[in-house]
Each structure stands twice: as structure tokens, then as C-alpha cells.
């Protein structure tokens, strides 16, 4: 009994790992207060789900989920190019609301609040992933590759430019770097990984509805990134384990389930406030949140 449950938790952790690490790329490394991440996650999930129920093979639905979410990340950065800091945060939060209400109201395509059921488990060329254990193996692989690539990027020269942009955007432009393009590229990559994480979520659960891509989800991944530490991949990885396991443990509290949901949100909020007050660099970060 415990074993399948453990696998389930590990799968959730894997999905949120990719989501958190991709958010840390834009939020942490590049300093973009990007609150639209949950919408990119949703765009990936819906893209993959809709393609899947229309018979498109997993490999394509998975990649297209990433590409489309990446494209929307780029669009968001492009449309808000002139906005800085808090204004960018507001605009990207607005984007998250718009995507949520589209998912809810474009009923012809998304079936609105009814959601999309019957998303099948992946079949990768010959390899049919039927049980959760195989799914975990596959997910671990995608996780490894994703984190490996993002780690490469943040430690490259491009990553150094992102760090410099976070510290002083004008200063970097004066050195001849086109910071707008840096943002577009960052948001594309960040969106891509959010998108594939959405795809992995949809194919695992088999059913998605708009509520999974609402602000409450944003609070969860923000909590992970901030708890782990801005611009620290190790931090995000550690914090994903901590937060997902904690939120699963709350399930076992002797409370009615109507309270557990909001209860989690309160716990995340408390964790966020404690971090902001006492340890703005998070568990493993080197950089203070400002």
C-alpha cells in the first residue's frame, strides 16, 4: 500500500521540480518577477491534453506543449518589455488571470469547468508507459535532462548576463547587451520547461481542469522557489521535496478535507512570510530577495 503512494509522491515531486527550477530561471536568475508561470504550466497541460485526445502521439504533444508555453512566455516578455519590477509582476499576474478565465470560458475548446478527462499515458515510439513506476522512471529522465540543461544555462556566460541584469539592467545595457532580448530568451526557455512540466502533469493525472492552474498553484511554486533560495537550483530541488512532502503529510491530519485545502494555502503563506522576514536568501541561496 505504501509503495504506490510513495511513487505517486515522487511523481508529483518530479513534476514540480521542473516547474520550480524553470521559475527560478526567470524569477531568481534573471530577476523577472514573473507571476504568470502558473499560466505557462496550464498552457502546456492543455496543449498536451487537447492534442492527446485528438490522437496526436505523446512525443509531439509533449514537445508542442513546451514550445507553445515557451512562445507565450516570449509574448509575455515582449508585451511587457517596457515594464519594470512591480509593474511587470502585476502585468504577468494579469496574464495568469486572463489565461485562467480563458480556460474556464472557452468551453468549445477546453470544456470549461468540466475539464478534459481521458488523457492517456505516454507511448514513446515503442515504449508504452502504463504503470506509475514506469512513469516515474520516464519522469526522472526528463527531470534529469531538464535540470542538467537549466544548470548549464545558468552557469554559462548567458547566466552571468542574467545575474548582471538582475543587479543593474541599465548598467548592463551600457556594456552593450540587449537586455530586452535576454528577457525574451529567458522567458522562452522558462516557459518551455513550465510547458513540458504541464504536459507531464496532464498525462500523469489523466484529467485536467482550470483550477489546477489558478493562483493557489502559483503560491505553491513561489513558496518552493523562495524557500529554496533565489538563484539556487539546489535550493529549488531541496525545497520541492520539503514542500510537496509536507503538503502530502497534511493529508493525514485529523481534519475535514474542506479545511485541508485552504489550510495548505495558509501554511504556504506563513512559510513565505517567515522566509521574507528572517531568511530572505532561503535555505540554500546566496542572494537576498529584494
Amino acid at each position: 500500500m505504501i509503495f504506490p503512494y510513495l511513487i505517486h509522491i515522487l511523481i508529483l515531486i518530479g513534476i514540480y521540480l521542473i516547474l520550480a527550477v524553470s521559475l527560478n530561471l526567470s524569477l531568481g536568475y534573471a530577476g523577472l518577477l514573473s507571476l504568470g508561470h502558473v499560466a505557462l504550466f496550464g498552457i502546456g497541460a492543455y496543449t498536451s491534453a487537447l492534442l492527446n485526445i485528438n490522437g496526436v502521439p505523446f512525443v509531439f504533444s509533449f514537445l508542442l506543449a513546451g514550445l507553445l508555453a515557451g512562445f507565450f512566455g516570449f509574448l509575455l516578455a515582449f508585451a511587457t518589455g517596457k515594464l519594470k519590477g512591480d509593474y511587470y509582476a502585476l502585468a504577468s499576474l494579469g496574464f495568469a488571470f486572463v489565461v485562467y478565465s480563458l480556460l474556464l470560458n472557452l468551453t468549445e475548446i477546453t470544456r470549461g469547468p468540466l475539464g478534459i478527462p481521458g488523457i492517456s499515458k505516454p507511448q514513446i515510439f515503442g515504449w508504452a508507459i502504463k504503470d506509475n513506476f514506469s512513469y516515474l522512471i520516464f519522469l526522472a529522465l526528463v527531470c534529469f535532462v531538464s535540470i542538467f540543461l537549466i544548470n548549464k544555462i545558468v552557469n554559462s556566460g548567458f547566466g552571468k548576463l542574467l545575474g548582471a541584469m538582475r543587479d543593474d539592467e541599465t548598467g548592463l545595457r551600457i556594456l552593450g547587451k540587449d537586455t530586452k532580448k535576454l528577457k525574451y530568451k529567458t522567458m522562452f526557455v522558462s516557459g518551455f520547461f513550465a510547458g513540458i512540466s504541464g504536459s507531464l502533469f496532464a498525462h500523469y493525472i489523466g484529467f485536467i481542469d482550470p483550477n489546477t492552474f489558478y493562483i493557489s498553484e502559483l503560491v505553491l511554486i513561489l513558496t518552493i522557489v523562495i524557500l529554496g533560495g533565489i538563484a539556487s537550483l539546489k535550493g529549488s530541488i531541496t525545497a520541492t521535496f520539503v514542500v510537496i512532502v509536507l503538503s502530502e503529510l497534511m493529508r493525514f491530519l485529523p481534519l475535514p478535507s474542506a479545511i485541508i485545502g485552504p489550510g495548505r494555502q495558509i501554511v504556504y503563506a506563513i512559510v513565505l512570510i517567515i522566509i521574507l522576514m528572517f531568511r530572505p536568501r532561503g535555505l540554500l541561496g546566496r542572494i537576498d530577495l529584494e
Binding site: K152, I153, S156, G157, F158, G159, K160, L161, G163, A164, R166, D167, D168, G171, L172, L175, G176, K177, D178, K181, L182, K185, V189, A231, R286, I287
Partner: peptide, 26 residues
């Protein structure tokens, strides 16, 4: 200056003209 960059990285980003490309810099 950039407070989260080392002295070496300051010079590195000033020198290099490839870093704006993700692929080239990776």
C-alpha cells in the same frame, strides 16, 4: 558594479560578445 558578480565575471561579460546567445555561451 554588479553586486552579485565576481571581479572576474565583470571582465568576462565585458569581454565576450557571444554571451547573449544561449547556445553559443553554453
Amino acid at each position: 558594479l554588479f553586486k552579485n558578480l565576481t571581479a572576474k565575471d565583470h571582465i568576462d561579460i565585458s569581454l565576450s560578445e557571444n554571451y547573449e546567445s544561449v547556445l553559443k555561451s553554453v
